[in-house]
């Protein structure tokens, strides 16, 4: 049984008499202990999706099962109990501005009727987990973005949840802080075994921390699987766009145009060998590097490169065969780089 089961989920909004489909027929299983990324462009419906998991948004159709329990069948009281077992953090942190750090972390415990003394003890332990012991009396306005998100994480963990939902949790942070927060999330996942669901529009967040990913485009689930597999050979347009950058609406530089373009993905082992140089030397043929990038996928360097090949058809096939022989993943690229 999956920890989170999303069955045939659809969500429609009525805005000024017009029906807007935010999500349509989403099916997704998230296993216990996973770090699961849900990625999509803004407006794709990912925030609605994550809010459906704890029923902040009630689905129009379909079901959400947490540990096999159908949320729609719970009473209001049972649902609130269930929600307290699911932590959530947000892009805008959403800390209580008039409470200090310690009281913010105590807040979910207070709501659940835990005695103040006990709550404070727990809050102090959590402050140590997020490494903010010296800030317990500070107010949110005195903290930086990264510190605020740490407090929010501590607060979300206060009720010992089994699941942590992260709604664009790093989108308001700079790259260094993002990395620190992601490391903290990974640590929490490993130490406490909490299932983490990460909503983001940044591919780097997914490749950095997630084991599995689902790609949402216009309210539909277009692709799902292991991060490495999808990074190497994305099938959907949305996945390609998220991995290689936006292609729509950008003019191609005429000098970058080539008749046939391929995308190659290489890993650490192949990254050591100068494959492109060898290729050029061996075939005595010019290849045009149109784009090259190395990304960190779950701690391993994975690179992608887009090559423009010479016009000769036969030569093209020879080059591709050579690259495949070197165990690189080769895919054709039809759209503009």
């Amino acid at each position: 049984m999956s920890e989170i089961e999303i069955r045939n989920l659809s969500k429609k909004f009525q805005i000024k008499g017009q029906q807007i489909v935010a999500l349509s027929e989403i099916n997704l299983n998230i296993e216990k202990g996973d770090i699961f990324g849900i990625i999509g462009m803004s407006g794709a419906g990912k925030s609605t999706l994550v809010r459906s998991i704890n029923f902040l948004e009630k689905p129009t159709e379909g079901e959400i099962l947490i540990d096999g329990v159908n949320l729609a069948e719970l009473s209001a009281r049972e649902l609130r109990k269930k929600r307290s077992e699911i932590g959530m953090i947000f892009q805008s942190f959403n800390l209580l501005e008039q409470k200090n750090v310690l009281d913010n972390i105590c807040f979910p415990l207070e709501i659940n009727g835990i005695r103040k003394k006990e709550a404070r003890k727990k809050a102090k332990e959590l402050l140590a987990v997020v490494k903010l012991e010296d800030k317990e009396k500070a107010y949110p306005s005195q903290l930086s973005g990264g510190q605020k998100q740490r407090v929010a994480i501590a607060r979300a963990l206060a009720t010992d949840p089994k699941i942590l939902l992260c709604d664009e949790a790093t989108s308001a942070l700079d790259p260094q802080t993002t990395e620190a927060i992601l490391n903290l999330l990974r640590e929490i996942n490993e130490r406490l075994g909490i299932t983490i669901v990460i909503i983001t529009h940044q591919m780097s967040v997914v490749t950095d921390i997630c084991k599995k990913v689902a790609i949402i485009d216009s309210g539909r689930l277009v692709e799902e699987g292991d991060v490495e597999t999808i990074f190497e050979s994305p099938r959907s347009d949305a996945a390609k766009e998220l991995i290689s950058g936006k292609t729509v609406g950008r003019k191609t530089y005429s000098e970058l145009e080539a008749e046939r373009k391929i995308r190659i993905v290489y890993r650490e082992n192949s990254a050591y060998e100068p494959i492109i140089s060898n290729l050029v030397l061996k075939f005595n043929a010019p290849v045009n590097i149109l784009k090259a990038d190395t990304k960190n996928v779950n701690g391993r360097a994975v690179g992608e490169m887009i090559l423009g090949l010479p016009d000769d058809k036969e030569l093209q096939n020879e080059l591709i065969d050579y690259l495949k022989e070197k165990k690189l993943v080769v895919t054709e690229v039809t759209e503009d780089v």
């Binding site: 902040l56 932590g87 947000f90 959403n94 807040f107 709501i111 929010a152 939902l165």
Partner: peptide
């Protein structure tokens, strides 16, 4: 957002 956070904690 703060209200939503409180809801997500089961308030």
């Amino acid at each position: 957002g703060i209200i939503e956070a409180a809801k997500s904690m089961g308030a």
